[in-house]
Design a protein around this nucleic acid. Structure first.
Lengths: 367, 367
DNA sequence: TTGAAAGCGCTAACAT
DNA sequence: ATGTTAGCGCTTTCAA
């Protein structure tokens, strides 16, 4: 196959121009404005470029001059590699990639290790704007993004940042709907499994004080939806045990379910703030002979394919659309004057993991 | 939350220096070499920067000067968004992201629409090197990458490009192993489902002429492994029907299986060059009451999680490691003089979809 | 249609 | 410890 010198760069636009005895402008035009010079001259330039191994205008130098990098930066809450394991993040990425692709923009994944609070990666990123995917309010990387003089779009969280567009769903309304679904079935004793609430690892019960402290607005909002829904039937939030998990994995969900059910064996419905956690809970139930939904109702949030396959009762949200809208919002050449907020619809999906609690089964059968 | 002017950039390193009455070097050092100036002075600089809304050195200008972009470009064979749907690609990306993350390098997804042969995106990419994931030999984007004066690492294909590192597996040996597994079970009548062989859409039988034309070395090599394995028991390649599908989806696999089985109802083993195609074939078989493995043996290649769950007999390859090694190969500061080639191990996974053909069942039972 | 001049914003020698 | 001097490679008015 063809071989080329992949090592040094001797040739530059200026050297090429000198070699040809034309001006730098002409060479530049040969690449960027073919209509600004005669076809034969252009051919001569391109031929000489090939001969000298000139790879065309240096992208970085051009970016400096034109003040556009041709790429969008993506800031994720977790380690970069996590994004490819989590089905929700993957869906978001697919949508975002689609939008970038259509606009001919690159997508730069900014390397952030949540451990190291090293913000330099954000400063290094040669991008025309940032998409921020679901990071906590006080994330230093996010703060660094805000410093950058480029437009920013947030997906999900943080919420209410001045001058920043946002795409998300109505988490509170969605969870309120879920709560009503469950109370409508007759459930009154609930348990809740939620994702991490702070930057610091904590696994176990999360009391109201801790819930109030969360730096993840989405978790706060989902819990608020539940609280309000339960309140409608007289279940006070104080009596609902909430367990938190730092890791967002099926294993973590299973462990949390085990823990919560051990402490509160009387609950009839286990509400999870994500499908992954719910799938973990489901696995725990199956492995321990706990009938779902006969003995225990389990619900999730997100509507990932695995959940659908498992028949999980959940809230489906358009993750792919979120990514696409985020990209469009950022790349849209339009009115940047006032920040925009896009709220996408959700849908309650009643699967096979929710049902009236056992006591009512008996009640109804005795009828 | 904090608000900042996300619109204009009035402040620059030079203007800050002027404002403070110090040299540009000093301001630069304040950011890049804190040990090169007194702490108080540095504090003064940083304070002034905050006050004037100076976001720190412009990354593009710095890149131009330092000649490094701090990012790796990724070239994919398919549309960008496809990468997030295909489990093999996702695994690769996870590994690559991991390597980038560890090296503090960004990962730039280069937007290529396979339809438009528009190569500008490759020229625009401000990166220090490229990782090329499984593209065809004559891909114009790949050719454009080779022009760029930066190091390049290829995963899987193309093969044997001068001056380019590569990571892959021994596809021929792996498929040879699969062939022997099947011939060892007693199979003699095979059908093969393979992925696209050329840039142009073709769905249906692929005769030897077409197979020879392929611009995808991996497909060629996998078929060669089968051919050699079958030859060992006297099955000539000419008598093995090979069907090709352009799309790489479960639906495509199902359609291809239907087509091939209709034309060759006598085959006892259907070998697929990917798990996705095999899962499609499996679905077809299940839906049409064809017993697997009793009436038909089906095998795949890759070892994706879905395949494992389905009990597919397949070749497991370390897709995540491929990504990680590709990244390390590229980012490694070491010896760039001679191109390196890394071949990762594969493993034949015998699942529940392969078994001796029916004729032999009878034969053995009669024994 | 082509060329000359003027930077884009920054860093790295090399002084001091 | 701080400043001076040169560019990195390119695009873009503006003039010829």
């Amino acid at each position: 196959m063809s071989g080329a010198p992949h090592t040094r760069r001797p040739a530059t636009l200026a050297s090429l121009a000198a070699e040809l005895g034309v001006s730098r402008t002409t060479v530049s035009n040969a690449y960027n404005r073919p209509d600004q010079l005669s076809a034969p001259l252009r051919a001569r330039v391109l031929e000489a470029a090939r001969r000298l191994g000139y790879p065309g205008p240096d992208p970085v130098a051009r970016s400096l001059r034109t003040r556009r990098a041709g790429a969008v930066g993506l800031l994720l809450t977790e380690a970069l590699s996590y994004a490819f394991r989590d089905p929700v993040a993957t869906g978001f990425l697919e949508g975002l990639a689609l939008a970038c692709e259509q606009a001919g923009q690159g997508l730069l994944l900014v390397p952030v290790s949540p451990e190291h609070a090293d913000v330099t990666a954000v400063h290094q990123a040669g991008v025309d704007g940032f998409v921020v995917y679901s990071v906590r309010e006080d994330d230093p990387h996010f703060l660094a993004v805000l410093q950058r003089p480029v437009p920013t779009v947030v997906c999900d969280q943080p919420i209410g940042v001045e001058g920043v567009d946002r795409v998300g769903v109505d988490d509170r309304a969605a969870m309120l709907g879920m709560a009503r679904h469950l109370t409508g079935l007759g459930h009154r004793r609930f348990g809740v499994l939620c994702m991490r609430l702070t930057a610091h690892r904590h696994d176990g019960p999360a009391d109201e004080a801790r819930q109030a402290q969360t730096s993840y607005p989405v978790q706060r909002t989902r819990l608020a939806g539940l609280r309000d829904g339960f309140a409608e039937v007289g279940v006070t939030w104080a009596e609902v045990p909430v367990h938190e998990r730092f890791e967002h994995t099926i294993d973590a969900g299973a462990a949390a379910a085990a823990e919560l059910l051990a402490a509160h064996p009387d609950i009839t419905a286990l509400v999870c703030t994500s499908d992954i956690l719910a799938l973990g809970a489901l696995r725990y139930a199956v492995q321990h002979g706990l009938g779902v939904p006969e003995e225990l109702t389990i619900t999730g949030f997100d509507g990932v394919p695995e959940a659908e396959r498992a028949g999980l009762t959940t809230v489906r949200q358009p993750v792919r659309d979120k990514g696409q809208v985020a990209g469009e919002l950022l790349l849209e050449r339009g009115d940047r004057s006032k920040p925009r907020q896009v709220i996408l619809p959700t849908e309650l999906v009643v699967g096979t993991t929710s049902k009236a609690p056992r006591a009512l089964h008996r009640f109804f059968s005795g009828w």
